[in-house]
Design a protein around this nucleic acid. Structure first.
Lengths: 332, 332
DNA sequence: TTGTAAGCGTTATCAG
DNA sequence: CTGATAACGCTTACAA
């Protein structure tokens, strides 16, 4: 049989209350008794039953992370960081895949929030908060990440790449490039619009504006970024900026297929991501997103809500990407 | 306040025992009473407290999946399938990343097995079972997947690609290819050795043996599969077979970079995986692994151990990959 | 400085 | 056919 708190109490002739307090440091116990208890615990190999504890305290010891697609490297990064900070606080992390389906997301959210987990970190696929609110009980510990929603009622963490992208384009311009193309994806998403804006503003600020000529729009399914890259090269671009990591990868695939070498035939301003290692022979300039920091902060903020009982404030935190010039190492 | 079982009992004037039995269908209750109870449940919006139930039943409601690398598509697939079968049985899935580190794996396993979860699905990074056994209590519900270990004491699920690969090579031969190269990765891993064997046997069976000439060994870090592909082409191969999906992808990258077209300049025998979509313009012949089935079976077998209380048998189940010729759709 | 005992919300064992 | 009631292992007033 498993050894329980009563066994320990019996072993060293104190009450179970004392044992409990020794374990949790929740009230004064004399040094000698403390010692006795700790010895007994070690001797018997006692380990508190987490299930019982959680039950008694009315918590589940579980946090859920909801992501649109578990197989992306971004999801994996977020998972790992979050797991670190939450497990340090005694929580376990369960992951749910929403498959970018708002319907499914709402369902899962409803179940999870109704007594399964103590809190949720949500990378939503919904575009408006009102699509979600019915699924979330008032005052449920929740943190949004990565998606700006308008009328949001919870803490939310975002990454802005405006400045970094602006700096990247500026750098290209200072290097003498005058025809800098831009591959834009999903303009309907806020982050994408912001990045396009950064590109346009930089271009305009330095008097290189050509209107829409060097902006092409990619689409994951019908008009991949490789095609876009091709188009831009045909338009005589000497440099290409992109709006995300996937596009950067695709563009590189096209360029290498067309035997165009980075740094010689064309310059690329990319985004950092986990798959650069494949291409590390050619160092490129890039925008680096603080995904890890975002995930860790999300964990912290969630813990505050849960433990300190801070009611969810609609505070929005914006982290900023940094621009990393060519030949410079990624910051850890 | 949350509504609990006593509230329901009070509402319809029966005992909590009856309510519990209605909910769990665990003993006969007259139709009328059943009806009354169900109405009350609906009326009050009662939902059983899972935490309390788990506590009472001495279970945690949690299963852990340990994988070497959460960011691979294989891990993602396994996660999704497993999650489906386990959540249907009322369990939640927590994922732990071992980072291919046996040390870390052992630690996590030790913690998880000592009362945190009810069972574990383990994609181990260890090469021998003895490295693990100290971390696992006797009779702990556990299922191994994807890694053959010698003196294993638990159910284990494997995928063999021997036959499929053999068939693929055979198909190339029947198409008239006589110089078929093979890119082998990590011969020290059992699956890899098996696949190399399949290739060699097929080649030998059809009298095309050239010894080691057309076998090249890749290494993720120092000697990528693109390099291997290049070497094989220089050796005059008209077809290339690979030992896994990553190598297939890398080989294709090289080929497209060298402007060599599949089906015209060279034939490729690849492995199925999640990133073929990028290349779907060219259909290729491939070995398709039943990863989903493996994951689902792992879930089933684990449930058997946990629920039916079947003590862990050292039974090994081998699933077989199928060969899918060119131009044929992937089986769902 | 420590002990006693009342729960937390279920399930399950007895009786009836 | 159904009801009391004792557990499950722990935390935490309240007492002493």
């Amino acid at each position: 049989m498993k050894v329980k708190i009563t066994d320990v109490a019996k072993e060293c002739g104190v009450s179970i209350a004392t044992v409990s307090h020794v374990i949790n440091g929740t009230r004064y116990v004399s040094p000698e008794t403390t010692q006795k208890v700790q010895d007994a615990i070690r001797k018997l190999g006692y380990q508190p039953d987490i299930g019982a504890r959680n039950f008694k305290k009315g918590r589940k010891g579980l946090i859920a992370l909801l992501v649109p697609d578990i197989s992306t490297s971004r999801s994996a990064t977020i998972f790992k960081q979050l797991d670190e900070v939450l497990s340090a606080a005694g929580f376990h992390l369960i992951v749910a895949n929403t498959n970018r389906d708002p319907e499914k997301e709402r369902e899962q959210l409803k179940i999870l929030c109704s007594g399964v987990v103590d809190g949720v970190v949500l990378f939503t696929a919904c575009k408006r908060f009102s699509q979600l609110s019915p699924a979330i009980p008032r005052d449920f510990p929740l943190v949004f990440i990565d998606t700006p929603l308008n009328d949001i009622l919870y803490p939310s963490l975002l990454i802005s790449s405006y400045t970094a992208l602006y700096q990247g384009v500026e750098d290209l311009i200072r290097q003498g490039h005058t025809r800098i193309g831009y591959i834009c994806d999903q303009v309907d998403l806020a982050y994408s619009a912001e990045r396009l804006d950064a590109y346009r503003t930089a271009i305009r600020d330095f008097g290189l504006d050509l209107g829409e000529e060097l902006v092409v729009y990619s689409d994951r399914k019908t008009h991949g970024a490789h095609v876009c890259a091709k188009e831009l090269m045909e338009k005589g671009c000497t440099a290409i900026a992109v709006s995300n990591n996937q596009s950067a990868t695709d563009a590189m695939k096209y360029l290498s297929g067309a035997r165009l070498q980075l740094g010689r035939d064309v310059e690329l301003l990319g985004f950092s991501g986990n798959d650069w290692y494949e291409y590390r022979t050619e160092s490129i300039a890039r925008v680096s997103q603080p995904v890890k920091e975002m995930a860790r902060m999300a964990g912290q903020q969630l813990l505050e809500q849960i433990e300190a009982g801070v009611p969810a404030q609609p505070r929005t935190t914006v982290l900023h990407s940094s621009y990393i010039p060519k030949h410079k190492k990624e910051d850890a």
